[in-house]
Computed example of a mutant assay.
Amino acid sequence: MITIEQWNGQTDDIEALARVLHGCVHGGASVGFVLPHPMAEARRFWRDTIQPQVTGGGRVVLFARRETQIVGTGSLVIDTPANQPHRAEVSKLLVHPDHRRQGIARALMTALEGHARTINRRLLTLDTRSGDTAEPLYVSLGFQVAGRIPGYCMDPTGARFESTTYMFKPL
């Protein structure tokens, strides 16, 4: 059974969250990192980048737990400019490769949408690697393609540039 919980920035969860990120990058996910991607870099990302945003109120992080193990995560960036208080950005939807194809990403996205509604956000935006397996998931959840940017980022191996697809969903 999977449960979805909100992370309050507790330091003792950083190792488990770092394992999810590390596994995803090593599994080919294009989420801002290139190989080699040591665990220390994944820990630093959660500790130095995400944790301060969570404790500062600019980001909401949800995670999926199977029994005692954190197996996936996703977040809403809610620290938006003054003229965009109605919007949130979905960021870093990650499911560890050992736990994919079990509805975890869908459950996380549904929970993120629900949370966005509770804080009066009426528009979600996100970007994903064009052609990635996540793109059809987002479409099935009602997201629409706003456009694609070619050569947006390097693939995880650093060998080539890939396009990204920007998407949105009115709530």
Score class of each variant (00 low, 15 high):
residue 27 G to C: 10
residue 43 R to D: 08
residue 59 R to G: 06
residue 19 R to K: 12
residue 33 F to R: 06
residue 17 L to I: 01
residue 147 G to N: 04
residue 42 A to G: 07
residue 150 P to D: 07
residue 122 R to W: 12
residue 103 G to K: 07
residue 35 L to K: 06
residue 140 S to R: 13
residue 157 T to N: 11
residue 68 T to F: 03
residue 119 I to L: 12
residue 114 G to S: 05
residue 89 E to A: 12
residue 51 Q to K: 15
residue 17 L to K: 02
residue 118 T to G: 04
residue 148 R to D: 09
residue 90 V to W: 03
residue 17 L to C: 00
residue 157 T to A: 14
residue 102 Q to T: 08
residue 142 G to D: 05
residue 46 W to R: 06
residue 33 F to I: 04
residue 153 C to K: 03
residue 12 D to N: 14
residue 105 A to L: 08
residue 92 K to H: 04
residue 149 I to L: 11
residue 124 L to R: 04
residue 162 E to D: 09
residue 145 V to C: 11
residue 98 D to T: 08
residue 164 T to K: 09
residue 12 D to R: 10
residue 3 T to A: 13
residue 50 I to L: 09
residue 57 G to V: 12
residue 150 P to W: 00
residue 106 R to W: 05
residue 26 H to P: 05
residue 151 G to Q: 11
residue 78 I to S: 06
residue 110 T to R: 13
residue 73 T to D: 00
residue 102 Q to K: 13
residue 39 M to H: 11
residue 171 L to S: 11
residue 59 R to E: 14
residue 75 S to Q: 14
residue 128 T to I: 06
residue 45 F to D: 01
residue 164 T to F: 04
residue 48 D to N: 15
residue 12 D to M: 06
residue 54 V to T: 07
residue 100 R to L: 05
residue 73 T to S: 15
residue 154 M to P: 06
residue 49 T to Q: 12
residue 47 R to I: 02
residue 30 S to P: 03
residue 26 H to F: 07
residue 124 L to C: 06
residue 79 D to A: 15
residue 138 Y to S: 00
